[in-house]
Simulated scan of single mutants.
Amino acid sequence: MPQNYVFRTIELDGQYLRTAVRPGTSSLPPLLIFNGIGANLELVFPFVAALDPTLEVIAFDVPGVGGSSTPATPFRFPGLAKLAARMLDYLDYSQVNVIGVSWGGALAQQFAYSHPERCKKLILAATSAGAVMVPGRPKVLLKMASPRRYLQPSHGVAIAPDIYGGAFRRDPHLAEAHANKVRSSGKLGYYWQLFAGLGWTSIHWLHKIRQPTLILAGDDDPLIPLVNMRLLAWRIPNSELHVIDDGHLFLITRAQSVAPLIMTFLSEEKQPAVIRHQPTSALIKN
């Protein structure tokens, strides 16, 4: 377990959230991570390790995942976004940059839309606009619909090439290393996450997301075909798209390549063009 994280379990109205903060000294706002479905916060540590070590990073287990408690009734994405904002209040953060991965990318969109004052910049990785997405192949989606890969690590290793694509097709050790970091809290939390996105879509308000947005897509992603990321880039006004030569989990498998892209994006302060008017006399020909 990394020693430079501060782990806390906080309580918000009876809901316990397990959080991990990597302290930093950067002048940039901290980076808040919304993880994928069923994924506990430890799964993003390889990605965090590739980022600038001075950048402060916040990760947490959503309700029903990892070390967080499972609620009696499920949250929807707006409720989860509100809970994340309250978590930031508790941890004493006013504004953050946000990255969302896969299922967490939908939550990141909701957070940026519902709480724009809390989100300075937005990064969307391997995600979609929800119900209107162009789906992956049915047999891949069926494997994702079950939490079995988190409950039985051997099953997760077996299906990893089919659901994650990219480097997982070529290196079986990646699936084993990934499975070893999984911390499941049971089936119910996974089904609650599925329910959070049931019928949800951001397509009708994506044009209202004004934050600078970096969109990252894998070109061999069985779960989120590339066309979905192109749709996001088309609908979000201030966005840029980068396509990564890998699969669904490129943040982990290509961390050393992707992290510099992210740090450059977070560090950029785009200034409006300065128009200097020439004196009238200079425009008059003799």
Rank of each mutant, 00 (worst) to 15 (best):
V96I: 13
P29Q: 00
K121V: 02
P46Q: 08
P116S: 09
K82N: 07
K82T: 05
D52H: 05
L88K: 05
A106V: 13
Y93H: 14
P71E: 07
L51Y: 09
L124N: 02
T9E: 07
F47W: 08
F45N: 01
A85Y: 08
F75A: 02
P74R: 04
P71G: 04
L17C: 06
Y113V: 07
V101P: 01
S68A: 10
I123W: 15
S69G: 09
F60A: 01
A39L: 15
H115T: 03
L88G: 03
Y16L: 01
G67C: 05
R22G: 01
F47M: 08
H115N: 07
S114T: 09
T9M: 02
L41P: 06
P71R: 05
K121W: 11
G24T: 07
G24N: 09
R8F: 00
K121P: 11
Q15G: 03
F34I: 00
L17F: 13
K120G: 08
P23L: 01
V48I: 14
P74N: 06
I37L: 14
W103R: 03
A108R: 15
T54G: 00
D89E: 14
D52Q: 02
S69P: 06
Y5Q: 06
V62L: 14
A84I: 13
L31S: 14
Y5T: 06
M1S: 05
L55C: 00
E42G: 00
I58E: 10
V6W: 04
P46V: 08
C119Q: 03
R86W: 07
Y16E: 00
F60L: 02
M1I: 04
Y113A: 09
I10Q: 03
Q15D: 05
A84V: 14
A39T: 15
I58H: 05
A108P: 15
N4F: 10
P53G: 03
T9G: 01
L28N: 07
L83I: 15
W103L: 06
T73E: 15
L83M: 15
